[in-house]
Amino acid sequence: MPEDTSWEYSLYIPNDPRAVTISRRTLRLILTMHGLIGLVDVAELLAAELIGNAVLHTKGPAALRVRWSAGVLRIGAWDADPEPPDAPARFADVAEDENGRGLALVRACSDLWGWQPLSRFGNRGKYVWCELGAPQPGVTNRAS
């Protein structure tokens, strides 16, 4: 059973393709330790897409941010590029394409997603995030 308390983690990563695997494994451990194993598979997919985009499309460092509050898991990726992400297409429209599926998957598999420009401590960039609600008993497919 998930905890009722709120918590947040940040994992700062270099611009390195291996960061995607490290982020996924770290997220799996965090969610397992907090009793949210029912969210792990979808959360790993979403985190991999968000961090993958940050590493692939930018040249600087990035960060994975994971927050649980009021029964909602927010997964986000910060990167140093202030340019907005491309608007996601419907997943059905890009399912056969080799590229451009990342944010379409995020849109299809999350309850809510968005992005915001950031300027903190002299750093510019953006934060792309998505949210998943706590799993409901008997619900097995979020991407409907």
Rank of each mutant, 00 (worst) to 15 (best):
P2Y: 12
P2H: 12
P2W: 13
T5W: 06
T5Q: 06
T5N: 05
S6T: 05
W7V: 13
L11E: 02
L11N: 07
L11S: 02
I13Q: 09
I13W: 01
I13G: 04
D16F: 01
D16C: 03
D16H: 07
P17F: 03
R18Y: 01
R18C: 00
V20K: 06
V20Q: 08
T21A: 07
I22W: 00
R24S: 15
R28S: 06
L29H: 06
T32S: 15
T32G: 13
M33A: 02
H34I: 15
L39M: 09
L39T: 12
L39D: 03
V40M: 01
A43M: 03
E44R: 12
E44N: 06
E44D: 08
A48D: 14
A48N: 02
A48W: 08
A48K: 14
E49S: 03
E49G: 03
E49N: 04
I51K: 10
N53F: 11
N53G: 04
A54M: 11
L56G: 09
L56R: 13
T58N: 08
K59Y: 00
G60S: 11
G60I: 09
P61M: 08
P61L: 14
A62Q: 12
A63K: 09
L64I: 13
R65L: 09
R65V: 13
R65F: 02
V66N: 10
R67K: 15
W68D: 15
W68I: 09
A70H: 11
A70W: 04
G71N: 07
V72H: 11
V72F: 12
L73I: 05
L73K: 01
L73W: 01
I75C: 01
I75S: 10
G76E: 15
A77Y: 01
W78T: 00
W78I: 14
D79N: 15
A80V: 14
E83L: 04
P84F: 12
P85I: 00
D86A: 06
R90A: 11
R90S: 00
F91I: 04
A92F: 00
D93R: 12
V94C: 02
V94N: 01
A95K: 14
E96A: 07
D97Y: 03
N99M: 08
N99K: 06
G100D: 00
G100V: 14
A104K: 03
L105R: 02
V106L: 09
R107V: 06
R107D: 02
C109S: 04
S110A: 12
L112D: 15
W113P: 04
G114M: 04
W115F: 12
Q116V: 05
L118E: 11
S119R: 10
R120Y: 07
R120E: 15
R120C: 13
F121G: 14
F121I: 01
G122Y: 03
G122C: 10
N123E: 11
N123L: 10
N123S: 15
R124A: 08
R124P: 01
G125E: 08
G125Q: 09
W129T: 10
C130I: 03
C130K: 07
C130L: 10
E131G: 07
E131H: 08
L132S: 08
L132C: 10
L132K: 07
A134H: 05
A134E: 15
A134L: 12
P135G: 12
Q136I: 13
G138H: 06
V139M: 04
T140S: 10
N141L: 09
R142F: 09
A143L: 00
